[in-house]
């Protein structure tokens, strides 16, 4: 693994909700063309960390760096302007609209004030094709007619349609069957291959070992390691890290705090 500069970096992030200290001096880095898995038990602070990066919960202290320079993320708009997109677990698609309409929701193309359906449809097709999506019958299908995996695909495509640089996927395979999980994981890999910095939040260690290049386990609000995935990385090791914050098999040169 080359130690390139992180595309996006959170440094020394602290966040409290009332008296609860949810994030402790969290350092987290996303590299271009790399899938970084963020794993941890329920309540470890994964979602809160994501929400600070997405501008939904600005941190109490700490800073963000994008391409090496310090940036302010003071709201969802700032995050979107930097090209940070989050695909939440509930996907947030409109079932009564079709695939193209969902992909362009809120950023519709217009010609003289009227919707430019033709351009949107073509670009939607190209985006889906570039992601290798072949499971959709038509880009004019209503989302309500799609399967869970197809919806996930649409939600991910929506996130990458906009020259995004960092895509954060919150448990993208949680509700999917075996075949659909495979499709979505392949899509996650392909996102990284196109040069995006991909963050994968997951509970599923098998999924994580299959697609991630690096793993950041969280334990009680702290990032306890920054591991490159090697053939020796084991599920047991990861489970130990997220349940106790320590691991015996930490000999791959990773940073353990």
């Amino acid at each position: 693994m080359t130690e390139s500069t992180p595309l996006f970096e959170a440094v020394g992030i602290n966040k409290t909700f009332g008296s609860v200290h949810v994030l402790h001096d969290v350092d987290f880095a996303v590299y271009p063309g790399t899938v970084t898995a963020l794993i941890g038990d329920n309540g470890a602070g994964k979602s809160t960390l994501v929400k600070t990066m997405a501008g939904i919960h600005p941190p109490d202290s700490g800073s963000f760096r994008f391409d090496g320079s310090v940036v302010d993320i003071d709201g969802p708009r700032d995050a979107a302007a930097l090209g940070i997109e989050v695909v939440y677990q509930d996907l947030a698609l409109c079932e009564n609209l079709d695939v193209v309409q969902n992909l362009y929701l809120g950023r519709e193309l217009t010609v003289r004030g009227m919707l430019d359906e033709r351009s949107m449809e073509r670009a939607a097709r190209e985006t889906l094709a570039s992601l290798g999506v072949r499971t959709l019958q038509s880009v004019r299908q209503l989302v309500q007619a799609l399967s869970g995996g197809q919806r996930q695909t649409v939600a991910i495509a929506k996130a990458v349609l906009w020259n995004s640089h960092v895509v954060i996927l919150d448990e993208p395979t949680a509700a999917l069957g075996v075949a659909q999980t495979e499709h979505v994981l392949a899509l996650v890999r392909r996102l990284a291959e196109t040069g995006l910095g991909v963050v994968l939040i997951s509970h599923n260690m098998v999924d994580v070992l299959q697609v991630a290049d690096r793993i950041s386990p969280m334990y009680l609000g702290r990032i306890v390691a920054d591991l490159p995935v090697t053939p020796d990385t084991t599920t047991e090791q990861l489970v130990e890290l997220i349940t106790s914050g320590r691991s015996n098999g930490t000999e791959h040169g990773e940073v353990v705090r």
Binding site: R77, A80, L91, A92, C94, Q101, L105, G106, R107
Partner: peptide, 19 residues
């Protein structure tokens, strides 16, 4: 018009899309 259908279909999704 598109945004009206979106809000009617899923207001939360519409909000997150910046509407």
């Amino acid at each position: 018009g598109r945004h009206m259908y979106a809000v009617g279909g899923n207001a939360e999704a519409a909000r997150r899309a910046g509407i």
